[in-house]
């Protein structure tokens, strides 16, 4: 049992939107300090699976979740769970970078401030530290108090990464985090993720197989809401066990 050592485990998870079941009995341990990549054709439930991990599904109308998502051994759907505390353990990168309507500095300081950090020096340190970790510090250090919306899209996504890191999460979640970016910016994000996996558990959704091959340590393949196959990336790519996985990897289904 590596249950306890895994930050993130999913047990018999079913998700419904109204009458439509989009995730079917998923059980999965996400390995610590590795990049797990969720792949699968469009509409198979990748985003839903990712959002179930930090309870963003709560905000979808008519959604029903049953099963367990264990974060550090605690079922985040259990009673008396403080959802803000759970979410603080995870940083999120979305498909399009979503910068908050405030300055670069305030974007990074937003999370820490919400969680009670007020000390100016400490905030300065946090801002600098995580902008550096996201590889953005050098580019923005002279305009920290400019609106974040003036950054390029690629820079905005790195800002979002830094903002997520600033609440000191254990896990980084990304939903096709490079899909809105140019190839060079995508590459930068990929490189950051690879670098960050020594300290964080990373879960990324992608529909780009080449990207999965480049960064994945662990592959999760979903098909029509079912968890078809999961395992170490080399194994899955070299030797898919399920015919559907093979068909997807060779491009027969997409």
């Amino acid at each position: 049992m590596n249950d306890v050592r895994s930050h993130l485990s999913i047990r018999n998870l079913n998700v419904f939107y109204g009458d439509l079941q989009v995730l079917k009995n998923i059980s999965l341990d996400i390995p610590d300090r590795k990049i797990s990549v969720i792949i699968g054709p469009s509409g198979c439930g990748k985003t839903t699976l990712l959002k179930s991990m930090n309870r963003l599904l709560d905000h979808v109308d008519e959604v029903r979740v049953d099963g367990e998502v264990l974060v550090d051994g605690e079922d985040i759907y259990g009673p008396n769970v403080e959802v803000t505390r759970i979410r603080k353990k995870m940083g999120l990168l979305s498909q399009k970078p979503q910068v908050l309507p405030m300055s670069i500095y305030d974007n990074i300081a937003y999370g820490p401030r919400i969680h009670g950090h007020r000390d100016r020096k400490r905030l300065d340190f946090i801002v600098r530290n995580y902008l550096s970790a996201a590889g953005l510090w050098e580019e923005v250090k002279d305009r920290l108090h400019h609106p974040a919306s003036r950054l390029s899209v690629g820079q905005q996504q790195r800002l979002c990464l830094a903002r997520g890191l600033a609440v000191e999460p254990e896990i980084i979640l990304g939903d096709e985090p490079t899909s809105a970016l140019d190839p060079q910016s995508s590459q930068r994000i990929e490189r950051r993720l690879v670098e960050l996996k020594k300290d964080y558990t990373v879960v990324v959704v992608t529909h780009i197989l080449r990207q999965a091959r480049r960064i994945a340590d662990y592959i999760v393949f979903l098909y029509l809401g079912e968890l078809v196959e999961h395992g170490p990336a080399q194994d899955v790519f070299a030797n898919p066990r399920d015919p559907r996985t093979r068909a997807y990897l060779t491009g027969e289904i997409s």
């Binding site: 905000h59 505390r85 979503q98 908050l100 937003y110 999370g111 979640l173």
Partner: peptide, 27 residues
Amino acid sequence: IPFPLREASLSLGATRWETTRHVVLRK
């Protein structure tokens, strides 16, 4: 205002009210 912007704030551990005040109303 796009919903993913609210999600960005919520995912940092902000409450709905904090998200409304600092993100929705400001935007």
